[in-house]
Design a protein around this nucleic acid. Structure first.
Lengths: 215, 215
DNA sequence: ATATGTGAAAGCATTCACAGCT
DNA sequence: AGCTGTGAATGCTTTCACATAT
């Protein structure tokens, strides 16, 4: 996958991309508090980074600060949002309405960030046709039809590990290009599809290891 | 935080630490299938990496392979497990039994990897004293007492963002050194505590950005 | 033949220091 | 004076090539 280039033709580090949404989050929070200007050091501290790194990160997008003053909160938020393509609502579906899928359907944070969950899918006939928090649960066999109808761009997989790869394959054949996978397996996807993995047990194992290092 | 050293005194890269649990996962799977030897390339492919990288990763722990043959699945799994301190059961508590907390309590994957969820906590009097899937829900006010009683080493925070930092502070004052946080804020913790952040909206934003790069 | 283990090289990311604005 | 923007330097990580072992 090619990296996005700045206006000056430079590549933007992956590490920077990962931090941008965090900056955006705190900028939105500052704006809600009525704060309109923030220096790099203060914003970086909120986001768990440091001033020089934040400035370097932002420098890839352009020059948005004012020397001697700081960054205009609204203006910077707008630029990050636009750069990342987050300035329009995106439709999301959740495949697998077990406990975790259910929890994600109810999660308020997605809507706040512009992600509209607009379909749930399951293969359990007990679930199909039911509503969870105003959201209709469809049969996985109707994936293709509903994805087209509702213009779904991102899918979240919360099915058991044994079914995850075949669900991913089906999503890809339906034209889905972005998958967030909670099943504990590494999904094989073609180069023109992005898949992101969240494996809760592995996170705990890493955390546990770092804890043992402390003593 | 100091990095763990190999027997030869070299530091182990953080990037390697993150991959080790993935290798371990697939080694366990191979063992269950009755496969007892695996070459670096095959294991790496399952884990989403490549052979040379896997070999370099493992070289930090020692020499566990056989040239011309590959790695003994059981032996390697045992060594990774021991190295990471994952060869004994660890007790985990979940703070905040909303939909997400509930889903995590029910998540089977934790037990498979040796993490025993042995308490839930909430501040909602409706929940306190109830059982969720055989697990008792305690009052957050009893955090200190129960953490000691049940020898809890790792806590998972699934409370709203506004309460997450104060819960973290309380956990730290109870002696907890490892926190997995699902609330969308960056937790401030002292140097002798490790905190790991999973922000679902941010993951979606990163994924969404990479999708826009494809076209 | 085949696959590991590992220096050396190349590729990324972070930190630093300071010039350049306000 | 104060804070941004950025080349240069430092520190990490990945990739490569091949000596080494079965």
């Amino acid at each position: 996958m090619d990296k996005k280039k700045t206006s000056k033709g430079k590549k933007i580090p992956k590490a920077t991309i990962i931090r941008l949404p965090v900056y955006l989050h705190y900028l939105t929070e500052l704006a809600q508090k009525g704060i309109s200007v923030v220096p790099s050091h203060d914003l970086a501290e909120l986001a768990g980074g440091n001033g020089p790194q934040l400035r370097k990160d932002l420098s890839y997008l352009g020059e948005f600060g004012t020397r001697g003053v700081g960054y205009n909160v609204g203006r910077l938020a707008h630029h990050i949002s636009k750069f990342m393509g987050l300035n329009k609502e995106q439709s999301v579906a959740i495949i697998g309405v077990g406990k975790l899928g259910m929890a994600l359907i109810n999660y308020k944070g997605f809507a706040e960030k512009g992600f509209k969950i607009c379909a749930g899918f399951d293969n359990n006939s007990q679930m199909i046709g039911k509503k969870v928090d105003d959201l209709v649960i469809y049969d996985v066999r109707d994936l293709g039809k509903i994805i087209k109808e509702k213009d779904i761009e991102i899918c979240i997989i919360t099915v058991p590990a044994s079914e995850a790869q075949s669900i991913a394959d089906k999503l890809i054949s339906c034209g889905i290009k972005a998958i967030l996978n909670f099943a504990p397996i590494f999904l094989k996807v073609p180069d023109d599809v992005v898949a992101c993995q969240i494996d809760l047990s592995i996170e705990l194992q890493i955390l546990s290891f770092y804890r043992t290092l402390l003593k």
